[in-house]
Design a protein around this nucleic acid. Structure first.
Lengths: 227, 227, 227, 227
DNA sequence: AATGAATGAGGATTCATTCAT
DNA sequence: TATGAATGAATCCTCATTCAT
C-alpha cells in the first residue's frame, strides 16, 4: 500500500490514521481477539514492528480507535442536539442519543470491553490523555444536554452521559449474546424474555430515566441520594 | 482431601458442589483468568482431569457458580421483598435491590463477564437449563416486584430486573477500573467525574428509573415505545 | 520416535532422560541459544507443550543436562582418583582432573554459562536441589583429593574443585574465542599470545596452584588469607 | 545536550567519548542487556541512529568502554608496580593486582562477558585493534611484573596477567550469583561453601599461584608442560 | 469415576540495525 | 554528520482440554 517513509508530522499522523483505519475494518469484521497486530501491519503494508512505533501496545491501538469512534459520536450528538429547539422533549433527546448510537456497533462493542481490556496495558500518559479527552466531551455534550433539557442542573448532563455509557455496556452484553445462546433463544419461545432489542431497550430505559429526573426536578425534591 | 469415588448421585452432587465452592473462593481472591482448572482441582484434592468429568469446560464450571450466586441473591431479594408492605415506597424497594447486591462482589463481577465469556463455550442443554433457571426467577421475583410496586404492570417486574442486570454490568465496568486508571484518577482532581461509587450510582439510577416508570403509569400514557 | 504415554514413574524418568539426551545432542552441534524447546520436542517426537510437562523452563532443562554431565564427570574423576596410589604426585592428580575435562566440551561450555544463564529462570526447589547435588559431590570428590594429596587439609579438596571450576570458566572464555577473533589471531603472528590451549593452560595452572598449596603446607605457614 | 555537528576529528572524538561515558553510567546501574542503544542515545541527547555513526554495533560500543576501563586499570597497576621495591614480596604484588581490581566492578563484569558477547559482532579491524591494545599492555605490565618478581622469566609476566584474567572471569561467575541462588544460599547454611568472596578468593588463589611459580623457578625445574 | 500425561494453538513484543533524507 | 522511521527476526510458555488406562 504505502511504503514511503512518513517524514513530517503530517505524514506520521496520516500513517497513524491508516493504522487505526485498518484496525477498525478488521475489528468490524471480527472481534478484538481476532485482530492481531500482525494482521493490522499486513493490511497497511507495513512491517510488524512498525505498528509498535506508532502504538506501544495492542491496547493503545484500540484505545486510539475507541477515541476516534467516540469523537465521531460526540460530534454527531452535538450537531443534532444543537439542532433541537431550546425546549425539546425528552423523547426527542432520547432519540438523538439512541439513534446516533444505533449504527455504531463498533463503538458499542468497544465500549463494552473498554474498561475490562483496553484500559489495561497502557501507560499513565496515554490513560490520562484519554480520560481528559473523555471529560472534555462529557462536559461539552453534557452542557448541551443541560441547555436542551432545562430540568437538568449543572453537571447532570455529564452524569446522564455516564449513565448512558453504563446502559450501553450493560445492554451490549444482554442484547448481543453469543451464537449458542442465540440458538437456544431461537428454539425456545419461553425465553423470548431474553431476546432484547438493544436500540429499543436503550431508548425506553433512557427515556424513562430522563422522565424520572425531570420529575425529581419538578417536585423540587432535593437530588436523590442513598442511605 | 476426598479421594474416593463418588458412587451414587448424592456423592456426585456433593463433589460438584465442592468444586463450585473451591472455584468461588479462588475467584473471590483473584479473577476469572487467574482461576485455573488445575488450581481448582488441586484445591479440592482431585486430579486435573477429574474436574472435566463434572464440568465439561471452564465456562460451565463458572456458569454453575454463577447460578448458585444468583440463586442466593434471588432468595434474599424474595425474602426481603416479601417483608415489605404491599405499598412500599420506591426508595424501599430500590434499597432492597441495591443492598442485596452490594456485598456480592463475586456476583456482580461474574455478571459483568457472563455474556462475554461464560456463555461462550457451553453446550445447548446447559445453556438452556441456565436460561430457564433465570427465567423462572425473573418471573417469580418480578412478580413480587409487581405486587410491591403496584404501578408495575404484568411483565414489568421482570423487565426491571433485566434493567438492573444491565445497570450492574455497566456500572461494574465503570466503577471498578484497572490499576492504571485508578492511579490516574487518584492523581488528577479534574477527573473525579469518573470516580464512580458503584452502589450509590446503582441506587440513584434505579430509583430514578422506577420514578420514571411510576410517572408513566400515573399519566396513564400508553407504555413507551420507540419509533 | 516414542509416542506412547509414560505411565509409571520409570517411564516418566525415561522420557525425562530422552529429553535431556536430545538437548545434549542439539547443544553439542550448536549453542545454547540455538537450541529451542520446539527443536527438542521435535527431536523426541513429542509435542511442544509436553516438554514443559517435564521441565518448567528452558533453563531447568539445561540445568538437568548440566547435572548429568557433572555426574558423569565426577564419577570418572572419583574412579580415577581412587585408582591412584595413596601418595600420588601433583602431576598425576592434575592429569586426572584435566584429562577428564578435556573431552567434555559440552560440560565446560555449559559451566561457562551456568551462573550467567542457567541459574536464572529457575525456582527455589530446583536451585536448592542442584546446589546440594553439587555440594555432595564437591565433598566426596574433595575428600578423595585430600586423601590422594595429603598436604591438603580438610575442606581444601572442595576448595580446589571450586578453583578448578573458576579456571574452567575463565579458560573456556579465553581459549575458545568467536570466529572473528579466531580469524584475527590466525592472521596476526604478533597475537599468538592469545592463542591459548585450553587443556594445557588448565593443566599447568592447576599444577602450579597445587604446588603452591603444597609449599604453603610444607612451610607450615598458616593458611593464606587476605588483609 | 549537544546537538551540533561534530565537524573535526576532535569533536568526533569528544562525542565518541561522551557516548562511552553514558554507556558506562548506564551499565554501572544495570546490566549489559538492560543498556539499550536508544537509552544511550537519549542520555547523550542524540538520535538513535547517530550512535551507529560512531559505533557500528552495540558490541563495538561496549568494547570501547571495555578498552577504556582496561586502560585505567593498567595505568593504576603500572603505577603501583613501579612504586614497589625491586624485590617486592609475592604478597605485595598480589595485593596490588587484586586491590586495583576490587573497586572496578564494571571492569570485571565486562570481562566476564567479553569473550562470550562483546567479541561477537565486531569487524576484523576493530577486533585487531583491540587485541593489539591488549597485547601492548600485557607486555608492558607483564614486563613490570617480571622486574618486580625476578623469578618470573620473560613472557611469564603476560602469562600471569592472562591467568588473572581467567580467574577474574571464573570468580566473577562463581562469586556473583543471580537472585534466586543468593536466596537459596542465604537460607541454607549447608551451602555456605558456595558463598564466595570474590576479592579474597582472587587474592588467595593468585598468591598461591605465584608461590607455585616461584617454587618452580627455585627448584630450577624446567618450565612445566603437559604430556 | 479417576487419573495425569499429552497436546498444541496462539501472538505480542523488543531492539539492534538500516537507510532515505 | 544527524536523523528517526522502518524493519523483522525470533521464541517461550500457558492452560484448557482430551484420552488411554
Amino acid at each position: 500500500m504505502e511504503k514511503q517513509r512518513a517524514r513530517n508530522a503530517d505524514e506520521k499522523q496520516q500513517r497513524r490514521q491508516s493504522l487505526i483505519e485498518a484496525t477498525r475494518e478488521l475489528f468490524e469484521q471480527t472481534s478484538y481477539e481476532a485482530v492481531t497486530m500482525a494482521g493490522v501491519a499486513e493490511k497497511v503494508g507495513l512491517a510488524k514492528g512498525t505498528v509498535f512505533v506508532y502504538f506501544k501496545t495492542k491496547e493503545e491501538l484500540f484505545l486510539a480507535l475507541q477515541e476516534q469512534l467516540l469523537q465521531e459520536w460526540f460530534e454527531e450528538v452535538d450537531r443534532r442536539l444543537a439542532g433541537l429547539a431550546e425546549n425539546a422533549s425528552i423523547e426527542q433527546v432520547a432519540e438523538v442519543l439512541c439513534q446516533s448510537v444505533q449504527q455504531r456497533s463498533s463503538l458499542t462493542r468497544l465500549l463494552a470491553i473498554l474498561h475490562t481490556t483496553l484500559e489495561q496495558n497502557i501507560d499513565f500518559a496515554t490513560t490520562l490523555r484519554f480520560k481528559q479527552f473523555l471529560r472534555a466531551h462529557l462536559l461539552t455534550t453534557g452542557g448541551l444536554l443541560e441547555k436542551t433539557l432545562p430540568f437538568l442542573t449543572t453537571g447532570q448532563g455529564a452524569q446522564v452521559l455516564l449513565r448512558i455509557d453504563a446502559l450501553i455496556i450493560g445492554l451490549e452484553h444482554l442484547a448481543k449474546p453469543g451464537p449458542m445462546v442465540q440458538q437456544v433463544l431461537a428454539q425456545t419461545p419461553d425465553l423470548q424474555l431474553f431476546a432484547i432489542n438493544f436500540y429499543q431497550e436503550l431508548f425506553v430505559t433512557l427515556q424513562t430515566l430522563l422522565y424520572g429526573m425531570a420529575q425529581n426536578a419538578a417536585t423540587s425534591r432535593p437530588p436523590l441520594h442513598s442511605q
